[in-house]
Write a protein that binds this DNA or RNA. Structure first.
Length: 611
RNA sequence: GCGCCCGUAGCUCAGCUGGAUAGAGCGAAUGCCUCCGGAGCAUUAGGUCGGGAGUUCGAAUCUCUCCGGGCGCACCA
């Protein structure tokens, strides 16, 4: 059989097939990164931080997972749009607005001068800005609601509710203040993520979903298809409701309404478990708005956002939704497949949206709707204490403590990045004595980002990360810097050897001698293993996408680096005397380098020239 | 009460569609720079894969059940 050197019966029901190593090696040498051209238009939504406070480590996991997955999809040939959904009209934004207007008792005009001034002031010291200011204010406001007598508390809750309604409604002073704050915080989020090489194409906002009447269009479709029905009995009387995913009266079988389901409840019994979409007061719930938004994503709504440019990256523009957009704009939405990077706690509402699409007859879209879920980043009790948080005896016994913006408990993204850069900079200073200031800082940042991204990617999605500075600040063992170090050492070989990886590979491939000889024998088994793994890239990429699991690639890159490090120590390349064997060893290093750089690139980790 | 996730070495985790002797990293112990960078390499110690039953020639992996831990189950967003 082609490609195989032989077969043998091995017992226990096994047949060992032996690869023709020379042939396999030729395949690896010539494996160019030719992406298959998948025509699908894929939409990935990630980050989606409430624009009322600084980003924290939980948001970092979301953004890094999402961004990496985008890179994987693009490498596989998909056309991908990256969206960051902005809930600028929700309670969280309302809470900081309450903080400014009612706790700090500022007038809208005062807020208008204070926000930009504070942003500049805070940022003067480093990467901090209005998002940091709001972090504290949000926590204070949350406490403020709980303080005072019963009457006072009720009054404050009423202020909160009124503020929320005014923001949702728009066209008033409170809404203008909310817009000002949320936009300023949003800018900070984009800047924070840019430090990690994370960019977006489009920022759809809740305010436009409301004002452009997305819900109204969706409501018609939902009523027409019978997914929503008007409840006349029970606790949900007066609401438009839908059956929940997995319930016995679910709307796929029962599309015309809550009919007789032969159950003991009888034909008139209300489905108490149904999900309310339109409240009895006529307002729409979160899931309702989300259904409308997802109809838009698939191009099924019959309406579109207006678009304005918002944020400029070196090589492209990020657009934001607007009520009255510009005439010339790129087209977003209308995807054939979507991925929503949202943490596992939201799987119920996500399932509801999918359920609604399916009920409306959009089975194909429902099948291509992926809730890319992941578990939260929590803090170890020790870490919470380090942050100055008072940990109760009960909490101290727990494996981890949940991050809480409301309580102001968490590690801010920029703080962590700063800490990482400071730590890598100290290492760089100790090693790169010849480099200048700018060069050192650049290297330190590359390593810091490599460490952070790898840290967030090495865990599989459904493992809770119990965050601890000790682990996150580690640069040894299974870390990003370990892999980057392998790259640096490989590059040094070629630099000192006066050749290039491309030349070494070409020379090796052109030797028509029996390549098999290089890959046989005890001392060459590790080299063969390295080549074998190097040839697995496209398979790993495929698995990552099929399972929506970037951690597979992180693992692959690490194992490759590990095998290279082993090879590096066992075989001294530049002093090899046999020229043909030297070429072979150089080609091995070239393949390792090519695959390491390629893998790191998809993980969003740079390959430094020195470190 | 219902649903989802987790339980593998002292600690943190891999183990993907069931396959041969269960793997990494950290931590511990011991070695390794006249030689391409020690953010490295090698060796050693450390496991009844939470318990039990079932399916199978074969189970960490599939099914059931029990025990621990976490997260969801609003006319909040």
């Amino acid at each position: 059989m082609d490609g195989f050197a032989g077969f043998e019966v091995a017992g226990a029901g096994y047949i060992n097939a032996r690869l023709d190593r020379a042939l396999a090696v030729q395949n690896v040498v010539h494996a160019e990164g030719r992406p298959p051209s998948a025509q699908d238009h894929v939409l990935v939504e990630h980050t989606s931080i409430n624009p009322n406070k600084a980003a924290h480590i939980g948001h970092l996991r979301n953004a890094i997972l999402g961004d990496t997955f985008v890179r994987l999809l693009r490498a596989a040939g998909f056309q991908v749009d990256v969206q960051n959904y902005i809930d600028n009209t929700g309670v969280q934004v309302a809470d900081v607005v309450v903080g400014f207007l009612h706790l700090l008792k500022l007038s809208p005009d005062e807020v208008r001068t204070l926000v930009p001034a504070t942003d500049r002031l805070f940022r003067g010291g480093g990467q901090k800005g209005i998002d940091y200011y709001c972090w504290d204010l949000y926590a204070r406001t949350s406490q403020w609601y709980e303080q005072g007598g019963e009457e006072e508390k009720a009054a404050r809750k009423q202020i909160r509710l009124d503020t929320l309604h005014q923001i949702e409604q728009g066209n008033n002073e409170t809404a203008a203040v909310a817009e000002l704050i949320s936009t300023a915080v949003l800018r900070r989020h984009l800047e924070t993520m840019q430090r990690l090489d994370i960019e977006y194409d489009f920022l759809p906002r809740e305010s436009e979903i409301l004002h452009l009447k997305f819900w109204e269009a969706a409501f018609e479709q939902l009523k027409r298809t019978g997914v929503l029905y008007f409840e006349t009995e029970g606790k949900n009387k007066g609401c438009w409701v839908m059956s929940r995913a997995g319930s016995s009266t679910d709307s796929v079988q029962n599309a015309s309404g809550p009919e007789d389901d032969d159950g003991p409840k009888g034909p008139e019994a209300a489905d108490e478990d149904a999900k309310v979409i339109v409240r009895s007061n006529g307002t729409v719930t979160y899931v309702g708005k989300d259904i409308a938004y997802h109809l838009w994503k698939f191009g099924l709504l019959g309406r579109d956002f207006g678009y304005k440019p918002f944020f400029q990256y070196p090589d492209h523009t990020c657009w934001i939704s607007a009520e009255h957009g510009e005439a010339d704009h790129p087209h977003f939405g209308g995807a054939t497949a979507i991925y929503n990077v949202i943490d596992a706690r939201q799987s119920d509402p996500q399932a509801n949206v999918i359920q609604a699409l399916r009920g409306m007859g959009y089975t194909d879209q429902a099948d291509h709707y992926t809730h890319f879920s992941y578990e939260m980043v929590a803090l170890t009790p020790r870490c919470a204490e380090e942050l100055g948080y008072r940990v109760s005896d009960e909490d101290r016994e727990k494996p981890y403590i949940e991050v809480s913006g409301r309580k102001g408990l968490g590690v801010k993204a920029d703080d962590l990045i700063d800490k990482l850069i400071a730590a890598t900079r100290a290492e760089v200073d100790a090693r790169q004595t010849g480099s200048d200031e700018a060069e050192r800082q650049k290297i330190a940042a590359q390593i810091a980002i490599g460490a952070l991204r790898y840290f967030m990617l090495k865990y599989t999605r459904n493992s809770v990360i119990a965050f601890d500075f000790k682990d996150a600040l580690s640069f040894e063992g299974e870390t990003g810097p370990y892999i980057q170090y392998a790259v640096v050492r490989t590059r040094n070989i070629f630099r000192k050897g006066g050749t290039t990886p491309e030349a070494a590979l070409a020379e090796f491939a052109s030797q028509h001698a029996n390549l098999n000889a290089f890959f046989t024998g005890e001392e060459n088994e590790d080299i063969w293993a390295l080549w074998l793994r190097a040839g697995r890239f496209s398979l790993v990429l495929e698995q990552c996408i099929a399972a929506s699991e970037p951690a597979f690639l992180a693992k692959h890159a690490f194992q490759l680096a590990q095998e290279f490090a082993n090879f590096y120590h066992r075989h001294h390349i530049l002093t090899e005397e046999d020229p043909r064997r030297k070429t072979f060893l150089l080609a091995t290093a070239a393949v390792a380098l090519r695959e390491l750089v390629r893998s790191l690139d998809l993980l969003g980790i740079e390959s430094p020239e020195a470190m």
